[in-house]
Design a protein around this nucleic acid. Structure first.
Lengths: 219, 219
DNA sequence: CAATTAACCTATCAATGATAGGCTATCATT
DNA sequence: AATGATAGCCTATCATTGATAGGTTAATTG
């Protein structure tokens, strides 16, 4: 019983210890999502790319949304890593916020699907919990920004929270707009990004000098 | 010509000349979209609300997307009207940008579905042309902001375009974030909005004084 | 070797957008 | 008033898509 066929699915790949199915599925999904957008990819497409039948996906994930969620979650984790590892604690506040901003924008432009799910309400299905998990992962990125605002304001405060949220809104607007209006005649995208981030840096630094000027909090 | 039965569909409503079917469909769709989101409303739901069969929709619109597009297009038209009529040409630049900003944000929060289609890439189907029409209508709102930037900069220029786009990104970010992260613990939404718009006003006014200060462009 | 388990596959659902074809009533023309 | 055209609807039916049911194969375990 040599049985040469049939087993191919598993023994196809020579030696490299064959990536587990679950990972293969996530990889295939990631690539398809990046190419066609989260909502233009069917479970059948994912399955075909992996080389298995469509129902087989459900042996590894409870539903389509879980696949989307996991792909996006992993992406948001890399965002957090990008933001934290890029910050040199010895650099000036201004340098750090600029670095943070550039990394944030770069991530958004390179990980559209995940960014949309986390921060643009791009829903992957009717269920909220999955999206909330992705958003939660994304919010860790906000925490990094918030920490900078705390430092600029010399401690946590109402104003400090407002500052952080305002800067977040501005930089998110940049990413969101670039993603959504790709064919808009931007004067000069790179210049636009740099300029916009510069303005945010100004905003943060203004708060910083205001705080260190009087050198005394009111109370 | 008594003929009391059957004709009800048309003679049901007493005198008010019965709104045409097409309008009824758009009204029903608008309400459902506002309630459940553009992508969570089926053609059957729309039809049921109007009181006709689902295939009958296709006598008035080529497809579902056309219904979405028309609903959103009309909404974006009201945005343009809101922005233009609210601007008192005699008011200060600062007053006008603040008014513009507040109206823009208010519109976005009250017309989520349309705003998402126009500026957040919320696709109503696979077809792009319909979405482009909606975005085009939305871009007229940007033109109003752009005009303010031109005024602040004392004429069109590269910097003026950058200024307008930067302000647009910031205010769009505010709307987009509030729409997408509804459960985020915003310190104080109204304060956040006002503060954010104030900062945009500063940005615009700074460009204005810079221009009128030296009183000479660097040719 | 038997039993368990993991991973698949085929067949099939239900929901959804869309099409085909026929019925009814109004209206213009004779 | 009879006739033909047209508008507007309806029932039946598709194809696509996410998801489930039930059975089969093969590796693991006792």
């Amino acid at each position: 019983m040599p049985k040469p066929g049939l087993k191919e699915t598993v023994t196809d790949c020579p030696a490299p210890a064959q990536q587990p199915r679950r990972e293969q599925i996530l990889d295939a999904a990631l690539e398809l999502f990046a190419h066609h957008g989260l909502n233009n990819v069917t479970t059948r497409q994912i399955a075909q790319r992996v080389g298995i039948s469509q129902p087989s996906l459900y042996a590894h994930f409870p539903n389509r949304e879980a696949i989307c969620a996991e792909v996006c979650l992993r992406a948001m984790d890399t965002l957090y890593v990008m933001l934290t590892t890029a910050l040199d604690p010895l650099a000036s506040l201004r340098t750090r916020i600029i670095t943070l901003g550039r990394n944030y924008v770069q991530f958004g432009l390179n990980n559209e699907a995940a960014y949309r799910v986390a921060f643009m309400g791009d829903v992957t299905g009717d269920e909220l919990p999955e999206r909330d998990r992705v958003m939660g992962a994304g919010l860790r990125a906000y925490e990094v920004l918030y920490a900078l605002a705390v430092e600029a304001c010399g401690g946590e405060s109402h104003d400090c929270a407002l500052l952080a949220q305002s800067i977040w809104a501005s930089i998110h607007g940049l990413v969101s707009l670039l993603l959504s209006c790709r064919e808009f005649p931007w004067v000069d995208i790179d210049g636009f990004i740099d300029r916009h981030i510069d303005i945010l840096a100004d905003q943060l630094c203004r708060a910083s000098v205001q705080q260190s000027g009087p050198s005394m909090r009111q109370i």
